[in-house]
């Protein structure tokens, strides 16, 4: 019996030395914060798919390229930039018009932001006017007939990009 007493006493003392009184709070807090960070891990994000890099096909230098379904302007791809970037010496407008285009490679609709490049006179190359989903100017956020060089230091329009910013939500 004495042996058991000793054993338990020893075990209890050891446990008391190893664990703190606030340990439970620490673990609980860790669990709460930890559970919240799981969706931030690359594994979870890979499962949700990175919308910035969908599988693609086609020529970004042609008006037929899928991302240009609602474009009205000169392609930056033909003006020293790309479908994602502005040519040197121009500034990308932070204010843009946004629509969706269907990607033929995977059949999904993506959210496209047509950021204009501003600060130089019109590029003049690869004029495209597909205008799908374009609305009259009484819907100013969905019309491409206005100059979208807003919020930039110069309002001179040079060319347009077509950046994938997300995947369109579809009710199942």
């Amino acid at each position: 019996m004495k042996f058991l007493d000793k054993l338990f006493e020893q075990q209890t003392r050891q446990l008391a030395q190893r664990s703190s009184r606030r340990g439970m709070l620490k673990t609980l807090g860790g669990l709460l914060v930890g559970a919240g960070t799981i969706p931030l891990l690359p594994v979870a994000r890979a499962a949700a798919e990175a919308p910035g890099h969908p599988v693609e096909e086609g020529d970004p230098g042609s008006c037929d390229y899928w991302r240009y379904c609602a474009i009205d302007g000169f392609l930056c791809s033909c003006c020293g930039g790309s479908e994602n970037t502005c040519p040197p010496g121009t500034e990308m407008s932070p204010v843009t018009w946004i629509g969706t285009c269907r990607n033929p490679a995977d059949g999904r609709n993506y959210v496209i932001s047509y950021n204009d490049c501003c600060g130089k006179s019109s590029c003049g190359a690869c004029l495209c006017q597909r205008d799908e989903g374009d609305r009259p100017p009484y819907r100013p956020d969905k019309t491409n007939d206005i100059n979208w060089c807003l919020g930039t230091s110069s309002a001179a329009y040079h060319c347009s990009t077509a950046i994938v910013v997300g995947v369109a939500f579809e009710e199942k």
């Binding site: 932070p94 946004i98 997300g166």
Partner: peptide, 20 residues
Amino acid sequence: QFNYQMSCQGCHAPDGSGAG
């Protein structure tokens, strides 16, 4: 987020920071 992108983000920017 999709509705934000389609109806707000064009002017208010992706993170809501606005512009000009």
